[in-house]
């Protein structure tokens, strides 16, 4: 299973709206990032928050984004400042 992501890969966060609990912050949806590492597989919070068993477990990736890719000109800081977000694999696409 999975989409064959490896550390170092470029990914894009899925830009979808869902009406259930999920752990993907709005500000990274649709944004390009780079996978740093995998934390392991964890219960799916989108199931558990609604009384489900959280299975199958989903792989959780640490993804790094350039701040300027997220906030554009609004971001005041260095061009190489980054934001790190932990995201479940089913929220990631390969560009």
């Amino acid at each position: 299973m999975g989409i064959g992501i490896r550390a170092g890969d470029a990914v894009t966060v899925r830009s979808i709206e869902v009406d259930h609990h999920h752990r993907t912050p709005w500000f990274v949806k649709g944004k390009p990032g780079k996978v740093r590492l995998v934390h392991g597989a964890f219960f799916n919070p989108e199931s558990r928050a609604h009384g489900g068993d959280g299975l199958p477990k989903r792989r959780l990736w640490q993804v790094e984004f350039l701040q300027k890719d997220i906030w554009g000109a609004r971001y005041r800081g260095r061009a190489d400042d980054v934001l790190v977000v932990d995201l479940f694999e089913h929220w990631l696409d390969r560009p």
């Binding site: 993907t24 964890f42 959780l60 400042d81 932990d86």
Partner: peptide
Amino acid sequence: ADDVRVRVVDSTADV
């Protein structure tokens, strides 16, 4: 300092 990068970590999940 200007030459220090900032890396913000958002703990969104199980870590």
